[in-house]
Design a protein around this nucleic acid. Structure first.
Length: 401
DNA sequence: AGTCCACAGGAAGGGCAGGCGA
DNA sequence: TCGCCTGCCCTTCCTGTGGACT
């Protein structure tokens, strides 16, 4: 492309009206004014938390629901409103939001409590203090603040899985020693059976109240998408039927609104890149593929090198035949390892790698018996051919083959 | 009915990194 | 800062097994 062409392209690009009016409305940290189809949950949570406005301690609360059911969104919505009211009424309230999945912030007991204490302006060394000390520092901070404190622990299942439930026990116990302040814990979890694995003492004190968020159905997703799209897109930027199809595609999975919104955003981006004036049904299909492709590629590339060799071997073998067996994969795997100077893992381990890849949804591996010819896994690749191609290219390149 | 293939997948332990308490 | 502990990856060794073949 010559220089003039390029200049033309850029000036044309500026002139071209964007499909988007406010793209941030489709970003996942967007906080809409109105939340659709969650009235019941919002009212329940609001009733549980409201006593704080009269100086009483609200019950601890647990919120369950699969991803994209509006848990984080509604809790943020409610607490923000609560804060406003508390401010005008001069009620001392502090809300701390923590996402427990964020590494380095809240992935150990020490860090988590330290993060909480820092919220009160307390300086805490990154390491070095005994955990007891951290607790008492935190305790003093809270007591000095003379406030009602809400601690929102999002994705709480992920830390409890990692560091155990003792931390929750300690946090709830602190409460009985506080005189001028009080702590209310709001746990948010994707895992519906999460509390079953908790220590009974923790369980009873923590899930004093529970609110469950069911998945959205296709109809509800449509409404949500409509609402967001009127903010996000120019008028008439969407062909009829697009919203309906987008909702249907996502409802088919498990009513994940986050995914539905992402799908619409990616479709919009693709439409814009094609310089199309409207989002069409075909853009949705492309977006669906793109998201899946990115997901698969992402998960593959995130794995260590050994896994790449296994994936490489599987992809190479499945080019010629529908399905392959563990043994074939392992033979090729060993050869490939030799040619890229990598010490091969044992078959036992590769067998585990294969089943891990299966769990990740990169491949399909089913144990079958071939009778006289043994028992093995039948490995197939279920994702589309163009995804395989990209994966193949990425992995080959990475291995230098 | 019995054999036997080609693995699956459990158990135990080695070795290593990274975090923890002192 | 250093040893200790823990969790993770991996190996070794092992037993288990569905069904085509004899």
């Amino acid at each position: 492309m010559g220089e003039n062409n390029l200049t033309n392209f850029f000036s044309e690009y500026i002139k071209q009206e964007s499909i988007f009016k406010q793209k941030s409305a489709l970003q996942n940290n967007f906080l809409p004014n109105e939340i659709t189809h969650r009235d019941e949950q919002i009212m329940n949570v609001a009733k549980i938390l409201a006593p704080v406005l009269k100086g009483n301690k609200p019950s601890n609360l647990f919120v369950y629901g699969k991803t994209g059911t509006g848990k984080t969104l509604t809790i943020r919505h409610i607490t923000e409103n609560l804060m406003k009211t508390a401010e005008t009424q001069k009620i001392p309230l502090k809300v701390i939001y923590m996402n427990c999945k964020m590494g380095k912030v809240a992935d150990t007991e020490y860090r988590l409590i330290a993060t909480l204490a820092r919220e009160f302006g307390q300086e805490i060394p990154i390491t070095g203090l005994p955990t007891d000390e951290i607790y008492s520092i935190f305790f003093r901070c809270v007591e000095r603040a003379e406030k009602s404190v809400f601690i929102i622990m999002d994705e709480i299942d992920s830390i409890i899985g990692k560091i155990g439930d003792e931390i929750l026990y300690n946090l709830t116990r602190i409460n009985s020693e506080l005189k001028k302040s009080q702590i209310t814990i709001i746990g948010i979890s994707n895992d519906l059976v999460f509390t079953d694995n908790l220590d009974p003492r923790v369980k009873s004190s923590l899930s004093e109240e529970e609110v469950v968020y069911p998945p959205y159905n296709a109809f509800q997703l449509q409404n949500i998408l409509r609402e967001r799209s009127t903010i996000a897109f120019r008028e008439d930027a969407i062909e009829p039927g697009v919203i309906e199809k987008c909702a249907a595609l996502s409802a088919r999975e498990h009513g994940d609104a986050r995914r539905a919104i992402e799908l619409l955003r990616v479709a919009g981006e693709l439409a814009e890149r094609e310089q199309s004036k409207k989002i069409q049904l075909s853009h949705l299909d492309l977006a669906d593929d793109k998201i899946e492709k990115d997901r698969v590629l992402d998960t593959i590339l995130k794995q260590p090198k050994q896994y790449h060799v296994v994936v490489y071997s599987i992809l190479k073998l499945t080019k010629n035949s529908e399905s392959v067996m563990t043994g074939e994969v392992y033979d090729l795997y060993k050869n490939v390892c030799n040619s890229v100077n990598l010490r091969p893992l044992t078959q036992r381990r590769v067998s585990d790698v294969i089943s891990e890849l299966d769990v990740l949804g990169v491949i399909n591996a089913k144990v079958t018996s071939k009778g006289r010819y043994g028992r093995t896994r039948e490995i197939t690749t279920e994702v589309g051919p163009e995804i395989l191609d990209e994966a193949w290219k990425a992995v080959s390149e990475e291995l230098g083959l």
